[in-house]
Amino acid sequence: MNKCRILVIDDESQIRKLLEITLSTNDFEVKLAENGLERIRFAATYQPDLIMLDLGLPDVDGQKVLQQLREWYSNPIMILSVKNEESEIVKALDNGANDYLIKPFRTQELLARVRSHMRNHIKEASEPIISSSNFSIDLIARIAKVNNEEVKLTQTEFNLLAILAKNEGKVLTHQYLLKEIWGKSYSDQTQYLRVFVAQLRKKIEKDANHPEMILTESGIGYRFILT
């Protein structure tokens, strides 16, 4: 089987070196890029399965690079950033990034995220049933099961769970979820989302206080993980 290809775009040579070693020793093929033009051209010819993009590039705005990449590149893009400015991250996610990691990050976390994105990307042939050993959701029959038992969900609860499950591993912002489920005029009605996420967790998580499937991304949104 071919190795998965990852393109790392970062201006800091230390981070590039670190990622090259970490990823290649974990069976990924890694290519590095640093300056403005190089990165876009490289992405075009190399056709990576995943791009890691540093937002704080010196010569161009990382958000612009992201937008340009998204014009033709559809595989996962992971943002690396030292800014823990929520607004920058939300903007990047809106611009089409799948995920973000704040520097300094832990290697285990990085690898887990990369693997999850690769997995999802490969099986993205829109299957109607998304499942793991103890959870499944049938998007057509509109049935969710935990430990093989059907969970009674309201319309809205199901819609929320469906959109989360369809985007497994991807960070979905509050605004995105509100817009998708309740409509554009609700995009700042965060209280809807908070209440429904809390209810959904009570129904599908083992312990709603220690969620394992619907994870909170502080001040940004939620991420669904199949356990």
Binding site: E86, T190, Q191, R194, V197, A198, N209, T216, S218, G219
Partner: peptide, 13 residues
């Protein structure tokens, strides 16, 4: 940035 939050969720986070 004041917005609706679930404090219970914050505590467990």
């Amino acid at each position: 940035k004041m917005d609706w939050v679930d404090v219970n969720e914050i505590v467990y986070e």
